[in-house]
């Protein structure tokens, strides 16, 4: 393996082992995207030949792409790892959905609140996730082992200093730690690693003809019949793919001809827009991600 990827892989394995060794009740937050695929692959390697002693948790908003859910269930089955899913039932009862609710409120209820409920329900103390520092400015400031208060909130002004590979995992009552083994990976690294290790990812990352609607300059895929067309809106077939995957009504596609991993790598190597430019929830307001993280978003 090339030096850049090997260094990243080794660093991540150390972090994963450290998190699980220090934890009473660890969980891996599995979001089904390419970063989660890499994280899962690293988890398997970290404990090979033994099965990793940690379950997966997926926060299901019920608005994920259908292909994501199929991929999730198949992956857990094939790896033989236990998969927990959680949906905020109260949000469903209140009819919170991404079309009729503001993206801010929807995310707060169906993602942030749901995650907090799931973590409290199972009492997880160490939550491993696939966030990367190069995704967004406030993530760029987060530690690899990031302490959350009893309400799962992040306090960016009092983070524990980290040096070399020394990680303080001591928890006070109510505290939990979010762990980010992929902190130092970039989008390019993730794709290069997927290529080199032949890691399966959701097919939505690869370009294909798909039905989309153009809304506020973004291409939104019509994934099921819950999609409500507005006046003058029409569904058209376009050759698209996704750079990130989330809830389908809130995740914009890009027009692309990249059908294979090497073609995606080529596209990323010469991209002129950031990866999260297709994430509508990042654009609610300046510092939007920071606000969400302070309140407990991943």
């Amino acid at each position: 393996m090339s030096q850049v990827l090997r260094d990243l892989e080794y660093e991540s394995i150390y972090i994963i082992r450290e998190a699980i060794a220090e934890s009473q009740n660890p969980v891996l937050l599995y979001s089904i995207g390419k970063d989660s695929s890499v994280l899962l692959h690293l988890l398997m390697k970290a404990f090979y030949p033994v099965k990793p002693p940690v379950p997966l948790l997926h926060i299901d908003t019920t608005w994920k792409f259908k292909e994501m859910i199929e991929f999730r269930d198949r992956t857990a089955r094939e790896l033989g790892i236990s998969l927990l899913t959680y949906t905020n039932a109260e949000g469903i009862r209140l009819g919170i959905d991404p079309f009729s609710t503001s993206s801010n409120h929807y995310t707060a209820v169906m993602k942030t609140e749901a995650l907090k409920q799931a973590l409290d329900k199972h009492g997880f103390d160490m939550i491993i996730g696939g966030a990367r520092r190069d995704e967004e400015k406030s993530r760029a400031k987060e530690r690899i082992f990031s302490v959350r208060d009893a309400d799962h909130g992040w306090n960016p002004r009092s983070q524990r200093p980290e040096f070399w590979n020394l990680y303080n995992c001591r928890l006070m009552k109510g505290q939990t730690i979010r762990v980010f083994p992929l902190s130092n990976w970039t989008e390019l690294d993730v794709w290069l690693y997927i290529y080199e290790e032949d890691i399966p990812v959701v097919p939505l990352y690869f370009a294909a003809e798909r039905p989309v609607v153009k809304r506020d300059g973004m291409l939104i895929m019509v994934d099921d019949n819950r999609f409500k067309l507005g006046l003058n809106e029409k569904t058209e077939m376009k050759h698209i793919r996704f750079r990130t995957l989330g809830c389908y009504p809130l995740t914009a596609a890009i027009e692309s001809g990249a059908r294979t991993v090497p073609e995606i790598i080529e596209e990323v190597f010469s991209a002129d827009h950031s990866e999260r430019s297709g994430r509508l929830i990042d654009y609610d307001e300046q510092n939007s991600m920071e606000e969400k993280k302070v309140r407990g978003y991943f």
Partner: peptide, 14 residues
Amino acid sequence: MNSSDTNISNYLQT
């Protein structure tokens, strides 16, 4: 891979 092979292999090996 394709045309950018050499560029990427530089990136990867340093």
